[in-house]
Every structure is written in structure tokens, then in C-alpha cells.
């Protein structure tokens, strides 16, 4: 194995703490999301009781925003000409792999859908390193890192699982 070592393999199965989105599913957020994706399904806004409005299927993956009171990175780095604007949470709550100088490429994603989140529900997420393997690519060895992230309501109803594949070389 050229890239994999025992230090990296110890990460397989490692799980992040549960993170709860800072706000429940809110009508205004769903409206903006649906308008931005040009998806005018009336079920996003209509319904009552057990059939209260739903959120778009991928909406839970975008609920984990910068919490109120967090450092304002945009202001802190306003004078940095190399700042690319990225302020997203890194690694979905997981510790970074000790990959040193390897470059990460996006190897694709898979989403399994279980249910819609509904207005007013709170959403949680938890990630884990599902597998780390190595294979020989056309230009040398590649390390394939698969991270599973589960999204579910605060009463444990599953919503979706996102599987991201990272290719390191």
C-alpha cells in the first residue's frame, strides 16, 4: 500500500457527534429554496396537521448554516485577495484525515431518500468514515474515502443518507 497506512485506517468507522441544525424547517427558508431551484410544488407551502407542508427532499442537507454569534469570516478576510469566500463547515464534524500533501478530488455522491422533512421539524445529522481503500489509478495509487452522513428528525425519523466519495492522490 503506497498511500494507506495504519494511522489512516484507524479512521474507518469513526463517527461525528450529532449536530442539530440551528433552526427548524421554516416556511420562509423553504420558499426561498423552492424559488431558487425553480420548483413550484404546492406541497412545499400547503397542508395542515399531519399533512403539513413538506420541504424539498435535499433541503435538510442545507440546514446546517453558520450559527448566530460565529466569527464573521467574510469580514475577517475582506482584505485577503486569495480568500475564495468559503465558510462552510469542514468534514461534516469529522476530524481531518492525516493525508498530508494529497489532493482531494470529488468522486461523486449518492443520496438515499427515506422521507420528507416537514415544516416545524428539527433536523439532526451525523457523519462517519464508512470506508477507506486504495486502488491503482492510471497515474499512480489513489485513496478512496467514503463518508456517510445521515439526516433525521429530532425524533429519529430517517430523512436521507448522503454518501460522498473523495479521491485522494
Amino acid at each position: 500500500m503506497a498511500l494507506l497506512n495504519d494511522e489512516i485506517l484507524k479512521f474507518v468507522g469513526l463517527q461525528s457527534p450529532e449536530v442539530e441544525a440551528p433552526h427548524p424547517v421554516e416556511a420562509s427558508e423553504v420558499r426561498r429554496y423552492a424559488q431558487a431551484t425553480m420548483d413550484d410544488d404546492p406541497h412545499y407551502m400547503e397542508g395542515q396537521g399531519a399533512d403539513r407542508p413538506i420541504a424539498p427532499l435535499l433541503f435538510p442537507t442545507h440546514m446546517f448554516r453558520t450559527p448566530f454569534g460565529s466569527p464573521d469570516v467574510l469580514t475577517e478576510r475582506a482584505g485577503d485577495p486569495d480568500f475564495d469566500g468559503g465558510v462552510a463547515l469542514s468534514s461534516r464534524g469529522l476530524p481531518d484525515l492525516p493525508t498530508r500533501n494529497l489532493v482531494r478530488l470529488n468522486g461523486g455522491m449518492r443520496v438515499d431518500f427515506y422521507d420528507h422533512a416537514r415544516h416545524g421539524e428539527r433536523v439532526c445529522m451525523r457523519s462517519r468514515y464508512a470506508s477507506i481503500t486504495e486502488k491503482e489509478g492510471g497515474k499512480g495509487p489513489l485513496m478512496i474515502v467514503v463518508i456517510d452522513t445521515d439526516y433525521y428528525t429530532s425524533d429519529q425519523r430517517p430523512l436521507l443518507r448522503v454518501q460522498n466519495t473523495g479521491i485522494y492522490r
Binding site: 431558487a36 431551484t37 420548483d39 410544488d41 424539498p56 427532499l57 435535499l58 470529488n106 468522486g107 461523486g108 455522491m109 449518492r110 443520496v111 438515499d112 431518500f113 454518501q163
Partner: peptide, 27 residues
């Protein structure tokens, strides 16, 4: 944004009695 379009397409096609089980894609 592009992945939204794929999910919209499949979800709409599944209709109100079907269910989109999974979608995978590479950029």
C-alpha cells in the same frame, strides 16, 4: 443546484404515489 434539477425530475416523475429511492451522480 444541478443536483436539485435531477431530484426534481425524478421526484416529479415518481408522482404522488411513488418514491424516489436513490440518486447518484458525478460532477
Amino acid at each position: 443546484l444541478k443536483q436539485q434539477f435531477i431530484v426534481q425530475l425524478l421526484r416529479g416523475w415518481a408522482g404522488k404515489s411513488g418514491w424516489l429511492v436513490s440518486a447518484s451522480f458525478q460532477f
